[in-house]
Simulated assay, not measured.
Amino acid sequence: MTTRNSAPSAAEMELWPELIWQLATLVKSGLPTREIFAAARGYLHRPVPPEDALEKLLTATERRTVNTAIDDIEMLLTRCAQHTRYGLSAGQAIGSAMDAGLLSHEHSRLRAGELAACWKVSERTGAPIGDMLERLAEFLESEIDLHRARESAMSAPKATGRILSGLPLLGLGLGMLMGAEPLSVLFGSVPGVASAVIGVGLAWAGRVWTTALVAKAEVGQL
């Protein structure tokens, strides 16, 4: 099974608190554990493609990612429904699904691990699983808020990086318009060629460095 390790989108992240709130509601309704996971599958919904062609193009990648994440959740719920009917506890059933490598997204494996941990703690200590699931859902919602705040904060550095990457080309264009013949200066002598190579190298290094910094900031690693 293919593995996806890139940072999840907010839409993908939202699937898990929605699922966990639903599980908490089913638990508190008194439904037997062996029926909870099967019932939760009925509440999953896939994103509907937009009518507008431009919006459809812009959201196609995110919609595909969300659908793959939903596949992970459906597979997890199906496996847990089967195993709890055979007598396994919920924590064991979730752990079995993870051990089998059924979840393709790194984010799905992380959230499933947290879900399994809640159930195992409840099974060992007698703590109310419904309350534990609600606290986990609240925590995940706060994580989504932080994710959106980081995305908003990173929009300006991303735009600045793109603008700065294009400044050398803009400078060459302005020089040509002014009749300074920058290309003949750059490629007409050894010092000029050396300057061009160094300039391109520095511009590329700056672009890579800026991209790496923004990527780390987006996942909270700075």
Rank of each mutant, 00 (worst) to 15 (best):
A149E: 13
L26Y: 00
T78P: 03
V48Y: 13
C118S: 15
W204E: 12
D72G: 10
L170S: 04
A156D: 07
L183W: 06
A137I: 03
A212T: 13
I129E: 03
T125P: 12
S142D: 15
L213P: 11
A60N: 04
W204N: 09
G130M: 01
K158M: 15
R4N: 12
T125L: 05
M176Y: 02
M98E: 02
T68H: 09
L164G: 11
G126R: 01
M176N: 10
L202C: 05
T3H: 03
T211K: 09
I144K: 05
L169C: 10
Q92E: 15
K158H: 06
E181C: 05
A180I: 03
A153K: 06
R85I: 09
W204L: 15
A10C: 07
G42P: 08
G42K: 01
R109A: 11
P182N: 03
S122R: 03
Y43D: 15
S89I: 06
K120F: 12
D145C: 02
A53L: 10
A24M: 00
E106V: 11
L102G: 12
V66Q: 06
A217Y: 02
L174D: 07
K216G: 09
S155E: 14
A159K: 06
E134F: 02
T78L: 11
S122C: 10
T65P: 03
S96R: 04
R4S: 13
E123N: 07
T2L: 13
M75E: 13
H107S: 11
A156T: 09
V27G: 10
V185T: 09
P128L: 09
E143W: 01
V200I: 07
L146Y: 09
A81P: 08
A137R: 06
A215N: 10
L57F: 14
S89N: 06
L57V: 09
L23F: 01
A196L: 07
K28Q: 14
R150T: 14
T65V: 08
R148A: 14
P182V: 01
L167G: 03
H45F: 05
I73C: 10
L202M: 06
A69C: 05
E74W: 02
I20C: 05
L57A: 15
P157E: 04
A10R: 11
R109E: 09
G171R: 00
L164F: 04
G126M: 04
M154E: 11
G101Y: 00
D145K: 06
S195A: 13
R150W: 04
E114M: 10
E18T: 14
G206P: 08
A196F: 15
C118H: 10
Q22W: 02
R124P: 13
L133T: 06
T61E: 10
W204I: 14
E12Q: 14
R41C: 12
P47F: 00
F37G: 14
M132T: 12
E114I: 09
A10V: 13
L44S: 11
L222V: 13
E123H: 02
V185N: 08
G101E: 02
V121G: 15
R150L: 08
A24L: 04
T65N: 10
T211M: 12
G192F: 00
A180E: 05
K216P: 14
N67Q: 06
L213Y: 05
T25R: 10
S189T: 01
L44Y: 08
